[in-house]
Design a protein around this nucleic acid. Structure first.
Lengths: 193, 193
DNA sequence: CAAGAAATCGGACTATAGTCCGGTTGTGCC
DNA sequence: GGCACAACCGGACTATAGTCCGATTTCTTG
């Protein structure tokens, strides 16, 4: 029988991952995400470039790793939390529209709180956004809540387009957070009419 | 009085621009947009790298220059063409919804016909899409047609998010052109309800 | 048509992403 | 404890984007 890869991470690998993530977080805070090179992160962490790229793939992978915890928190609130973001108790389950509005609001909070990092994770390489697991999660969630429409999957993609970090970044810079948020909530209303 | 830059392009500059655009178009056709480096374009055109970057800024600028003619054609059809894409005659002007649907259909035709180039022009550097002049044109046009809504400018950005090359590329690969097209046209209907 | 000013040219140069592989370190098994 | 093997480490290496400035070409004016 083939031996699958061991589930436990080697001690040196675990240590290095923690050191790298700490160093990256510190450098990003200090100089901004865009101004920090992978060389600089490797040097600050005291590891070689090879280690950095083997473990995280590229700068986007590093960003994903840094966001991982917060992302999970949001995902768990959606799956198991209380209404309207979560499914609610059997006797007071929220309407799809309420849950969608709550999702958009919560996702925008998350996005705006970590905009440079999310933007990096989505734009480092073309198509990155649609490949990472998180996007599939959001898409599935939104699809289910749009089940009343003719093509929930396609409509879910359309709604998520308005939540792309690149888009929110550019439009918020022009019109401000408030108008972006209201426009996307209006879109939810239009799609759940 | 300050002397503004001369309106005429120097002969050598014009010659080089044509040579570079031809060489780039040929290489893109042959190897695909992503597989062609700027070095290769410069070499094929018989021109130095400096010339390439000074005139076009980066690969995105080169893509914009190659798309320029087709883009202008579409823009003129919108401004001066016949209904429903254009404004129409005084006695049979189309409704905003009709014009928006025609715009989305025409823009998707244009986008899908030149997807790799447009994608390059929008994603080469972060934020590129929102800086190029064409985006401002589409945004103004859509804003005017959404004047019935509470915040036409914000809503126009939202609709245009669904027309981003990156988004259309990823979703069309998963669901096919037809469903993407129908979903965005449905969005138009929802926004002009 | 000559000469000077200004724009342009082009290749050497820097910076950064990402790859590769010989050497090292940790892990499981006796 | 010691051994064999897998996994990991790290820095040298390649490829590409983008910059810079001395040399060259073009345009203008008398």
């Amino acid at each position: 029988m083939l031996r699958t890869s061991p589930p436990t991470e080697r001690a040196d690998a675990a240590r290095n991952r923690a050191v790298v993530l700490d160093a990256a977080a510190a450098l990003f805070r200090q100089h901004g995400v865009d101004a920090v090179s992978m060389d600089a992160i490797a040097a600050a962490a005291g590891v070689g470039k090879g280690t950095l790229f083997r473990r995280f793939g590229d700068k986007a992978g590093l960003a994903v790793a840094l966001l991982d915890e917060q992302e999970r928190t949001l995902q768990e609130s959606i799956l198991f939390g209380s209404a309207p973001l979560g499914p609610g108790k059997p006797d007071d389950d929220p309407t799809p529209r309420e849950r969608l509005r709550a999702f958009v609001a919560a996702y925008l909070d998350y996005l705006l709180a970590h905009l440079p990092l999310v933007r990096m994770s989505e734009t480092a390489s073309p198509g990155a956004r649609y490949r990472i697991g998180a996007y599939r999660f959001w898409h599935r969630h939104v699809s289910l809540l749009l089940s009343g429409r003719a093509d929930p999957q396609a409509d879910a993609h359309t709604l998520l387009a308005a939540l792309a970090a690149e888009h929110v970044h550019a439009v918020a810079a022009e019109l401000g957070h408030t108008r972006v948020r209201r426009a996307i909530l209006d879109l939810v209303d239009a799609l759940t009419a």
